[in-house]
Design a protein around this nucleic acid. Structure first.
Length: 583
RNA sequence: GGGGCUGUAGCUCAGCUUGGUUAGAGCGCCGCACUGUCACUGCGGAGGUCGCGGGUUCGAGCCCCGUCAGCCCCGCCA
């Protein structure tokens, strides 16, 4: 029906007879002349109706067309006269002089505008989600989904080119009591029994390795029934991959090739390999396992500098086995009193009792630590204009607090980044962590992650703290892009790990029997990774919310406003599953 | 599970501090005019369950309590 897309027309098309289809983006009716901006996926083009080239009946029809009507237009591409060109439009050197119009579909006045004026704010996100069919027409979102599509193709090409096979795994899977809450699907054929939607294809992809597939990938939908955030949706998409006969370096190389290809597709060539950082160094220097390496302002141990000088909070923390650490902010003296107060509030909200400061401006040293005996700018190694934010306590408190202090300082000072794209691997994660409530050791990631070979003897000797895992995260500008690990292939070690986590052998057999059976049948060494694709798309689109790169996203209460779901179901429908509501 | 912010015309907002005549603006919509616009312009017009429920008051968009929804954050997300 169409000869071209609207947004594709350029000066080179001048003279061509074309037929275009699209939505009426905006109208300018001058009486004798009528202009439409006609919109399709490719962009906008101006269609002009005038008595010199448009038959009277078509003129009449054009005058009655409303915004968002779908029309087909026949006409000739004309190079616009010099004074009538629009340099703000990619098609602004031409217009289509219409000889015929066909109204395919009328449209009610849209409840939210598709065409927005410069500077006009977006409608509320709630209305955008309710009217998603209109919101998705916006050129900005169309661009996001075009890029998302290209990123998918790019990931597929990159992995397939390295011998990875795209294999699907079930959506109806086995419930797992650990980890996130499962979305459950009742079985009609087996009343009282349930499938779960996959939190990830983890076990299946490991089984595929046992089955000899060597290199697997999947663009996998995953589901987790947990509370949401701006960067977290209940269903999300991972680029999931797994390979056999690999160690961490092999996985890094594959993931780097994919990420570099994705960033290049997004218009940002990046260097590989990425630098690496041990988890404990990330925590020590940045207070987080996803450091933003675009900026300095690293955390330092300042016990030797400020300890034993009579500052009660510090000395108490030191004698209680804690440490005194701080963020050194070059140029931090530029922060206002109000900034510093707000940063202190951030620190308090993160659990610190307070935040001490020391600031040097010229020869003047101020801040709550300035009065300490013998604490000169030289002792603190403060250059002119620098500032220290200092916290005391256990690392488990001060690390996350100083992370937030650092990020807040960066947000306020807006220093120029040292690089635009700071990737890093964070590896050597701890295998276990303490449960906040019970104090019991729980796995930090998932129970199939292999312990670091150097730590297995200590693990078998009963040690838990400080046992490292062959687990790694890919981090970009302070965002976790994904994580992976080398998996356990020895069924006895797997059972031992389950046992440490309080899962006895018979229990393990019941829950994970199919994995254990596969492991016992000849398991190649294997490991893999999962890239959080939605987050990658969000970053590369420059979007602020995952909702702008997911066509039909859920709200923070996990509702879908467009289709209005979840929805109640009839008692009769429940009866099919032999389910009844709990009063 | 907890905390914060928001909810007034189709849309974006003002009005709330200090309760008081008929709740306003811009955009959009409708009508008329207009031959080079591109955020067209000009003139005229329609359009309101002030999220919902309750309370205080002579009187509530405004104060109080509750509730719903959206967003952000903490917990949670192996």
């Amino acid at each position: 029906m169409r000869t071209h897309r609207c947004g594709a027309l350029r000066a080179a098309h001048a003279g061509l007879d074309v037929r275009l289809g699209g939505w009426v983006h905006r109208r300018r009716d001058l009486g004798g002349l009528v202009f439409f901006d006609l919109r399709d996926r490719d962009g906008l083009v101006q269609v002009a109706f005038g008595p010199d080239w448009t038959p009277p009946a078509v003129m009449d029809a054009a005058g009655k067309v409303g915004n968002e009507f779908v029309i087909l237009v026949r006409g000739k591409v004309i190079a616009r006269p010099e004074h009538a060109r629009n340099p703000d439009m990619s098609t602004g050197d031409v217009e289509v002089r219409a000889s015929d119009i066909e109204i395919c579909s009328r449209a009610v006045t849209p409840p939210i505008p598709v065409a927005r004026s410069k500077g006009e704010p977006l409608p509320s996100e709630e209305l955008r989600l309710v009217n998603r069919h209109l919101d998705l027409r916006r050129p900005e979102l169309q661009k996001n989904f075009e890029l998302r599509h290209r990123l998918f193709q790019c990931a597929r090409t990159t992995l397939a080119g390295q011998g990875f096979l795209e294999i699907e795994t079930p959506i109806l899977t086995k419930p797992t009591p650990e980890g996130a809450r499962d979305y459950l699907v009742p079985s009609r054929v087996h009343p009282g029994q349930f499938y779960a939607l996959p939190q990830s294809p983890q076990i299946y992809k490991q089984v595929l390795m046992m089955s000899g597939f060597d290199r697997y990938f999947q663009i996998a939908r995953c589901f987790r029934d947990e509370d949401l955030r701006a960067d977290r949706q209940p269903e999300f998409t991972q680029i999931d991959l797994e390979a056999s006969f690999v160690g961490p370096n092999d996985v890094y190389a594959v993931v780097e090739s994919v990420l570099a290809a994705l960033w290049a597709e997004g218009g940002h060539p990046v260097q590989t390999p990425f630098p690496r950082m041990a988890h404990r160094d990330a925590m020590e220097r940045f207070g987080t396992d996803k450091p933003d390496l675009r900026y300095g302002f690293e955390i330092e141990d300042l016990g030797a500098v400020v300890g034993g000088k009579g500052f009660r909070a510090f000395d108490d923390a030191l004698s209680a086995g804690g440490r005194v650490r701080g963020v050194r902010v070059a140029g931090g003296a530029a922060l206002s009193r109000k900034d510093v107060d707000a940063i202190t509030d951030v620190a308090r909200a993160a659990g610190l009792g307070g935040l001490a400061t020391l600031k040097r401006q010229g020869d003047q040293v101020t801040g709550s630590l300035a009065k300490l005996e013998g604490l000169t700018a030289d002792v603190a190694r403060l250059a002119d204009g620098d500032m220290l934010f200092v916290a005391a306590g256990k690392d488990t408190v001060t690390s996350p607090a100083l992370d937030r202090v650092r990020l807040d300082v960066i947000r306020r000072l807006k220093p120029a980044p040292r690089v635009a794209h700071a990737f890093t691997w964070v590896d050597a994660f701890p295998l276990f962590e303490k449960d906040r409530e019970t104090g019991a050791w729980v796995f930090a990631h998932h129970p199939f992650t292999t312990p670091h070979p150097e730590d297995i003897a200590r693990l078998k000797a009963g040690e838990r703290a400080g046992i490292r895992a062959l687990h790694y995260d890919a981090v970009y500008n302070g965002n976790e892009l994904g994580s992976g690990s080398i998996r356990i292939t020895d069924p006895d070690l797997q059972l031992m790990i389950f046992d440490i986590l309080g899962i006895k052998a018979d229990d393990a057999q019941r829950r994970f029997g199919f994995l254990l059976t596969a492991l016992a049948s000849g398991a190649p060494p294997h490991g893999g990774f999962a890239i959080g694709f939605d987050r990658v798309a969000m970053l590369l689109c420059g979007a602020e919310s995952l909702r702008d790169v997911i066509a039909f996203p859920k709200t923070t209460a996990a509702r879908a406003l467009f289709e209005d779901t979840p929805a109640p179901i009839d008692a009769a429908d429940l009866r099919v599953f032999k389910l009844a509501p709990v009063p």
